[in-house]
């Protein structure tokens, strides 16, 4: 079986940082598997200047990839399907085919996934027009497409706010930003868009029902203090209620001495700096 010393799963900020650090300390074969066709992960869909010294996501990726050590093998378009206790990985990709790979150390840098609409237990129908915030962001920033307005956004954390600002700037009407807590969740700098674009913020409220046949027509907004419900017409509903660490690959293997988790798959980090630091630490740990 083909083998390597360090296998890094995921080529986002954490994986890149881990690979760079590992290359400094480990003389063996280092392999980074990334399922996209380029490095960067979720950064690639972030057009706002929220990274490092005011960089956009793609600019941040360029920064992270500057002088990237050549000895790290970058396997793009490669999905890691399985990790076994015997320290083997099953990889699949259109370029590499299906391969089994033995490794000494594994660094998991798979990031996070968004909490899905389906997990929220919201009543009503299941029409077209419901997206996660990340999907809307990718649509807007990578494909130049807007969700159909007016748009309701559930969740006023940083992602919800950034999205509301970007969509407004692009000319999309925001019907409301709906927040379950009593106050808006995000950072002050991300909250500015609320005033700038006069976006209605509904706190202590939630989406209690989805209405529409084939396509979304509106949602019911429930006031969590009074229990009163009212109808809000909208064509798109964006779900921005948080993230879950993505570590299904190592389910049941947690705690193995050859395994390290870094970045958002370990815990959700609000700032990229701590993701990079964690990646580095994981990489430095791979001394051989």
């Amino acid at each position: 079986m083909e083998s390597c010393d360090v296998l890094i799963v995921g080529g986002g900020a954490a994986g890149i940082a881990a690979a760079r650090a590992a290359a400094e300390h480990c003389w063996g074969r280092i392999l980074l598997a990334e399922r996209g066709e380029a490095p960067g992960g979720v950064l690639l869909q972030c057009a706002h200047r929220g990274f490092g010294p005011g960089l956009t996501g793609p600019e941040m990726v360029d920064e992270l990839m500057k002088d990237f050590p050549r000895r790290v093998e970058l396997w793009y378009n490669t999905t890691v399907l399985r990790i076994t206790e015997e320290k083997t990985a099953l990889l699949s990709g259109r370029g590499i085919g299906l391969r089994q790979l033995a490794f000494q150390r594994l660094i998991l840098a798979t990031g996070c996934r968004e909490r899905a609409f389906g997990s929220l237990g919201i009543g009503g129908t299941r029409p077209r027009g419901i997206y996660t915030a990340g999907q809307a962001q990718a649509l807007l920033n990578q494909k130049g497409r807007l969700p159909e307005g007016p748009v309701a956004i559930l969740g006023s954390g940083d992602l919800g706010l950034i999205l509301a600002g970007q969509l407004s700037e692009a000319g999309c009407s925001i019907a409301a930003l709906v927040e379950q807590k009593a106050q808006c969740g995000g950072m002050a700098r991300n909250r500015r868009c609320l005033e700038q674009y006069r976006i209605p913020l509904l706190c202590s409220a939630t989406v209690s029902r989805v209405c529409g046949g084939a396509a979304l027509e509106g949602v019911m907004i429930k006031d969590l203090d009074t229990g009163a419900e009212r109808y809000l017409p909208c064509k798109s509903l964006l779900i921005a209620v948080g993230y879950e660490p993505e570590r299904e690959l190592v389910r049941g293997l947690e705690g193995a001495e050859w395994l390290q988790l870094c970045g958002n798959c370990r815990e959700i980090h609000p700032m990229i700096e701590s993701v990079i630091t964690e990646g580095k630490t994981a990489g430095y740990d791979c001394v051989t």
Partner: peptide
Amino acid sequence: CQGGRCRL
């Protein structure tokens, strides 16, 4: 993830 990553 209910299509969160593959839908687009």
